[in-house]
Amino acid sequence: MQSTPQQRFINYVRDPEHSRRIVSPFLPYPDVIRGSLELLGIKPPDDPFTAEIALSQALDYEPMFMTSCSDLIFPWVLCPDRSTDETDCYVIETCNGEWVRNVSKRLGIWGDESGFPVRTEEDHQMLWDVCAQVGDRTDAIREYYRSFRKMIGENGVIVIGHPNPSWLGFQIGQSNAFLHWMDFEDVYRRSIKAVYDASLVVMKIAIEEGIDFMSNCTYGLEITSMKLYQEMDMPVLQDYAEWTHQNGGLFWYHNCGQTSKLIMSGFYNKLGADVIETISPPPSGDNDLAESRQYIDRSICTKGNLDLGLLKDGTPDQVIEATRMMVEAVRGYPHIFSTADAVLPGTPPENYIAFVKTAREYI
Rank of each mutant, 00 (worst) to 15 (best):
V100T: 14
A132P: 03
A54E: 13
T67E: 10
V157G: 07
A241L: 05
L310I: 07
P165A: 07
R106L: 02
S56V: 01
A273G: 09
D307A: 11
L237A: 04
V343K: 07
S225T: 15
P163V: 06
Y333M: 09
V202K: 00
W181A: 12
S338E: 00
G220H: 04
I320G: 03
D123S: 13
A206M: 09
G97A: 12
F337H: 13
F148Q: 09
E52D: 07
D183Y: 04
H180A: 13
P283T: 12
G309T: 12
A51N: 01
A329G: 02
Q57M: 04
N287P: 01
Y145I: 05
Q318G: 10
V195D: 04
I353E: 13
W110F: 15
H245W: 02
I10S: 03
V130D: 11
A206D: 11
T259F: 01
Y352I: 09
V32D: 00
R298G: 10
H335W: 13
D139W: 00
H245G: 04
F9K: 03
H18W: 02
T224R: 02
Y229L: 03
M214E: 04
R137E: 05
E113L: 07
L59S: 02
D60V: 02
K105V: 10
R293P: 07
E291I: 13
F170Y: 13
